[in-house]
Amino acid sequence: MRARRTPEPYLWLLFSGGGVVAALLLPVLVLIFGVLAPLGVIEPPPAARVRALLDPLLVRLALAAVVGLCLFHAAHRIRFTVEEMTRGGRLDVVLAPLCYGAALTGTVIAVLVLF
């Protein structure tokens, strides 16, 4: 049989984990902080309260995980969508590191911002 040392299972776990997180949490977060608060439908929480909310280590870890997983989800999707649209599986050697690299960079930035 062919060798089955492949990073795909782990990338896929990040992708599917990201899919769940993105579907469950992202709409709520975007609705509250991206739509309702800026539009004044709800009172935008004062910066001090947001900061207080972010104070527990666990909350910051969770938020970093949410951002990271969503980014890896997007990276995986973009990687395969581009490959299918350009009919170029050969692009993968460049595209895969690029996509996941960007996701990793984004995650690192999120961690730096949060901590």
Binding site: M1, R2, R4, T6, E8, P9, W12
Partner: peptide, 9 residues
Amino acid sequence: LLATDEGVW
């Protein structure tokens, strides 16, 4: 048979 690049991945 299945957990390969030619399989489900």
